[in-house]
Design a protein around this nucleic acid. Structure first.
Length: 280
RNA sequence: AAGCUCAUUUAAUGAAG
């Protein structure tokens, strides 16, 4: 059962729902009874492939097949409805899970917070934070990164900086996601000095940068057309063994373009295409 | 039960808007 579950999940993650469904059916034929985790994997696979109705159907069916939805099941399905904007359904599912004796956990709250933030439901997002606190769940790095992301998108930069200070004051150690988020906020506004200082802080803290981290830094320079510095970051990135991505080249092209070096921007485009990247 | 720090669910990156 564990093997089948792993495979169902793996196919789901690879975007091959049909294979996932086939394995799910096949395991029954081999006398293996799917458990709650298998259902969770199947629901996720269908949802991620865009078959939300099928996912909802599986969710309804599982109990009849002897599998009680657990916290993970609810979190998945709540994520599906809330990111789909069906907030009332998501909220009624939270009630359902409570009736089943399951308490919403940090994942549940972070899921709702992210969905409400994304859907610009500020009241609901705020209420979620409040509910989270009331139920004794402390904000974690996920919570902070959601808040930081949307501060960034809304241009509430100073608030983001304050939050970043708060999270450290509360004893959290920022991870690569939090640093990258902050860097992208600085990057978007071209605040390269702060970005550079934060990048140093990150490395001093022993946090390993990802391609996204470097992207924020390049953006900061790109904003001002400072292409020599942007290229410098790319070299730094290559030296640290981080593979550039399409977004990396895009940021670099932006730096050249804003710096009035369209020819070089085109050169980067050609180079990345030659390296097998498909421009987005 | 099994898995010796991941079997399944939540967050971050460009430009434009």
């Amino acid at each position: 059962v564990v093997t089948y579950t792993t495979l169902v999940d793996a196919y789901g993650k690879a975007g091959r729902v049909d294979e996932a469904i086939r394995l799910f059916d096949e395991m029954g034929n081999h006398g293996r009874v799917p458990n709650t985790q298998t259902y969770n994997a199947l629901i996720r696979a269908q949802w991620r492939a865009g078959f939300t109705d099928d996912a909802a159907q599986v969710f309804r069916d599982m109990r009849g097949n002897g599998c009680e939805p657990d916290l993970w099941t609810y979190n998945t399905i709540i994520n599906m409805y809330s990111t789909g904007g069906l907030y009332d359904v998501a909220e009624s599912l939270v009630e359902d899970m409570r009736r089943q004796g399951l308490s919403p956990d940090r994942v549940t709250f972070n899921t709702l917070l992210a969905a409400y933030s994304k859907g610009r439901q500020h009241e609901k997002a705020f209420a979620t934070l409040d509910a989270m606190r009331r139920s004794g769940c402390h904000p974690d790095l996920y919570t902070y990164s959601i808040l930081l992301t949307y501060c960034g998108k809304d241009g509430r930069t100073e608030e983001a900086i304050r939050l970043f200070k708060d999270l450290k004051a509360n004893g959290h150690k920022p991870n690569v996601v939090v640093y990258s988020t902050m860097l992208s906020i600085y990057g978007r506004e071209g605040r390269y000095e702060e970005a550079r200082a934060l990048f140093k802080e990150m490395k001093d803290a022993g946090c390993v940068p990802s391609a996204m981290t470097f992207c924020g830094l390049i953006d900061a320079y790109a904003h001002h057309g400072m292409y020599p510095e942007a290229v410098g970051v790319l070299e730094e990135m290559l030296r640290s063994g981080v593979e550039p991505e399409v977004r990396t080249y895009t940021a670099l092209m932006d730096a050249y373009a804003r710096g009035g070096r369209c020819d070089d921007a085109v050169r980067v485009l050609k180079k990345m295409e030659k390296a097998g990247f498909v421009p987005d």
